[in-house]
Write a protein that binds this DNA or RNA. Structure first.
Lengths: 107, 107
DNA sequence: TCAATAGTTCGGTATTTACGAACTATTAGT
DNA sequence: ACTAATAGTTCGTAAATACCGAACTATTGA
C-alpha cells in the first residue's frame, strides 16, 4: 500500500472535508460510521452500494483518508476505517454534529 | 439569462451544499457573505481572486445558486447575490454557523 | 502450495472544470 | 437614437477528474 498522507489535526482543511462529504456515497459512509460509532472495512462499507465497483470505492476511501475524516489501520487482510471524531471536533467544533445529526435528503 | 433552478427550501440537499462549499473560492464567497451579512454581485465577489476568469466565477455562482446557498435578484445591470440564511437554517440548523463561524485553514 | 479475501493500481473512456472569446442585456453619455 | 461601458452568460476547447474492469499485491487459511 502506498504511503497515505493523512493530515495531522492542525493541518485539517475545512474545504477538503466539505468536498469529501459532498459526495453521496462518501457522505453515507461517514454518516454510518458516525451514527454507529463503529469502524468499517471497505467491503462492509460497500454493502449499501451494491453497484459500485470496488476500485471506485477504494478511491472514495482514499479521498476520505486524505481529507482527514477517517484513519485506517491494517488488521490482517482488511483495512479498518474509523472516523477521526476527536480530531475533527477539536479543530472544527460542532461541525460533524451539525452535518450528520439529522435526517437529511441525500441525492 | 437561462432560467435558474434554485431549489425550494424543502428540496435542499445536504451533499449539494457541502459540495458547493468544498471549493476554496466558493467557500470564501459564502464566508464573506455570511460574516458581513451582505450581498454581492459577481464582480465584487471576484476582487479577492484577481486571477480567476469571469466565466469561471460565473460558473461558481451557478453552483452556489443550484445548491440553494444563494439567491439572486437582478438589479439593473448587476446580479445581487444573497445567502439564503433562513432557508438553510430552517432545513439544516446550525450547519452554516458550525461551518463558517471559525478561522479555518482554507487551502 | 493453492485458493480465497481485501484492497490498490493501471489503462481507457467519460464526465467535469477552467479558460478566453464572443455574445446578451442594461445603463449612461452625448 | 447611437455609442460606449459594465455585468454576466454561453460556447468551444483543453486539462483535470471520476468511474469502471482487469490485473496486481498482500495476508490468511486449508
Amino acid at each position: 500500500m502506498r504511503q497515505e498522507k493523512q493530515p495531522r489535526t492542525e493541518d485539517l482543511v475545512i474545504t477538503d472535508i466539505l468536498s469529501a462529504l459532498g459526495d453521496p456515497v462518501r457522505f453515507a459512509i461517514i454518516k454510518h460510521l458516525y451514527e454507529n460509532k463503529c469502524s468499517l472495512n471497505c467491503t462492509q462499507a460497500a454493502t449499501p452500494f451494491a453497484n459500485i465497483a470496488k476500485s471506485t470505492l477504494s478511491g472514495h476511501f482514499r479521498v476520505l483518508r486524505e481529507s482527514g475524516l477517517i484513519s485506517v489501520r491494517k488488521q490482517g487482510v482488511e483495512s479498518i476505517n474509523t472516523i477521526r471524531i476527536d480530531d475533527i471536533n477539536s479543530r472544527f467544533p460542532k461541525l460533524l454534529d451539525s452535518i450528520l445529526s439529522n435526517d437529511y435528503n441525500i441525492a
